[in-house]
Design a protein around this nucleic acid. Structure first.
Length: 112
DNA sequence: CAAGTGACTACAG
DNA sequence: ACTGTAGCCACTT
């Protein structure tokens, strides 16, 4: 347990910064923190996000295709889709509708 | 120190 | 178009 902020915590912060009604991709977040090829790390971090506090809206994070690849980790396969729909995001065939339109780029927010 | 893991991404067949 | 394999990074044991 390092006193320093682990990369995971940084990822959690990014995910928490995702505004309601928007979604982001693992690769985008990874690139935002400087690991443009560390998409897997983001996914791995999300897996631990269940212990992260405050709550991490991991349901707003999808793969590059906009597919709810991590829905299985929410306990119920419909849980993630349900959460997204509650935020006004339409989900169809396990994929976010208009993903490119509601896509939130963390790099732009972080650079600010 | 080395090997294993994972909610990804890209390229090849 | 779809399936399979490889590369990638940081953390854990």
């Amino acid at each position: 347990m390092s006193r320093e902020k682990d990369i995971y915590e940084v990822i959690y912060d990014i995910v928490r910064l995702i505004p309601k009604g928007r979604v982001s991709s693992y690769g985008a977040i990874a690139a935002a923190i400087g690991m443009k090829s560390g998409a897997r790390l983001v996914g791995y971090a999300m897996n631990h996000s269940h212990d992260a506090l405050p709550y991490v809206p991991a349901h707003r994070v999808v793969n590059r295709n906009g597919l709810l690849t991590g829905k299985h980790h929410f306990g119920s396969e419909d849980a993630m889709q349900k959460l997204l729909e509650q935020e006004g995001i339409k989900v169809e065939n396990d994929g976010v509708v208009d993903f490119e339109k509601i896509f939130w780029n963390p790099s732009e927010e972080i650079s600010l």
